[in-house]
Design a binder for these strands. Structure first.
Lengths: 232, 232
DNA sequence: TTTGTCTTACATCTTTAGATTGATAAAATA
DNA sequence: TATTTTATCAATCTAAAGATGTAAGACAAA
């Protein structure tokens, strides 16, 4: 958590000029933040971010021209410790999820009380991530749901359960891209034995070749599952 | 959001008998919930859940005997609309993340004020998901970090960018488990042409065979990315 | 003890996969 | 226009993968 020795600097990006003015006034009059720049264009906003290096950006994510989410992503890629708070007119779970996924430090509805916006900025300036309670609940419903669907498909009937311990070892090595010789070497068994195991695996998983076996394994919760991959 | 026409029923599971008594007293005296049963064993707790069908379970997740998280998972699998709130002594980001992932409707620290526990129960009883603000912030740091690491690896240098449009088509079919003949049929080109493309793909991705190519593709953000896969 | 499963192993055979070289026409780019 | 890239196809060859049948020792369960 860093301390701001100076007044924190804020950049406002909102294609609605009226709302932009309103927020600027609010911040100027009722907070201890400095608005260093404002713009109604996401593209210009990204350039302003590079130029002014603000501490916080308030980014409208419901803009027609350029997607606000995409703009957030580009700003995050700059890796300049600029903290973006998403401003949106919608408490849509998918929107909230995507915004938080790509690195937004907060998500505030435009309809919320101005005090809440200031509070969010305070929290974010202090290094925290802020989501209003109601939106947090929405987020988690969406979040948990994405895992529930997964369980269903894998619960139907997971052919992986029919594999023996040794077959699982072999499959694990298959999912790492090993060929017969390599697997034989790592398990200290002969290549023909590996072939036997692999053939048994094919039978049990009802596939025709190793690529299909690997795909089946990865899509049905077999070990080596990597983190995430939740499409934006 | 459902309404409770009767007083909501609560099951308490906590291996610490003292804490168990304390929470029971708190709920009995200072809330409008009925404690239908208590136990210090996760396994017994699961059976009690089936028997009493409580509306809410307060589950200690720091138990030695059986992992509380595992117990939550088993209860969720029952699919009986029993809402579990995780009780923990630690505000560990990983613990919070895992609890919420498997379906906990709330996560409350044992050190928190008793009013906060009652509030969490009220929210959860009302169909919402509740996480204290401080823990929400922790959760999101962890959540966003899991995506950041991903970007790094894929940002280093993604060999997939060197593929031509046609090669991407071929790779896409490879990641679906097709062999040469099948790909040739689907793209209306000869099998030898497919071989040429596949060989070029191997060169560009610096791999030796199709399985490795498929693994590279899946691990580096190539289309077909499925939802989730965040290991518990 | 018998039965069954698991792990190991080999032989044989067929089918894919993969490497290499070469070639042509279209399309994009310099 | 000249050059490079891309997409297409072929022939050839080697290596790897996959199918099938058989079998022995270990071990656990009936």
């Amino acid at each position: 958590m860093r301390e701001f020795k100076r007044r924190a600097r804020v950049l406002l990006i909102d294609d609605n000029a009226d709302h932009l003015r309103g927020v600027k006034e609010l911040i100027t009059l009722e907070s201890s933040y400095d608005v260093v720049a404002t713009t109604t264009s996401a593209n210009i906003g990204i350039n302003l971010a590079k130029k002014y290096r603000p501490d916080i950006i308030l980014m409208d994510i419901n803009m027609p021209e350029k997607d606000g989410l995409q703009a957030i992503q580009e700003i995050e890629k700059l890796d300049m410790d600029i903290r973006v708070i998403a401003l949106s007119g919608y408490d849509d779970a998918d929107l909230i999820f995507r915004a938080m996924k790509i690195g937004a430090k907060g998500y505030v509805l435009k309809t919320m009380a101005s005090a809440q916006l200031i509070y969010a900025m305070d929290e974010v300036a202090a290094g925290k991530i802020y989501l209003p309670t109601a939106l947090t609940s929405r987020f988690f419903e969406y979040f948990q749901n994405s895992f529930k669907e997964e369980e269903k498909t894998s619960a139907e009937e997971n052919l992986l359960t029919y594999l023996t311990a040794r077959e699982e070892e072999v499959l694990d090595l298959l999912t790492q891209g090993n060929n017969y010789k390599s697997i034989a070497g790592k398990l200290f068994i002969s290549e023909t034995t590996v072939k036997t195991h692999v053939n048994n695996i094919f039978q049990k998983l009802q596939v025709n070749d190793r690529t299909q076996a690997v795909l089946y394994a990865l899509n049905n919760g077999f070990a080596n599952r990597r983190l995430s991959k939740i499409a934006v």
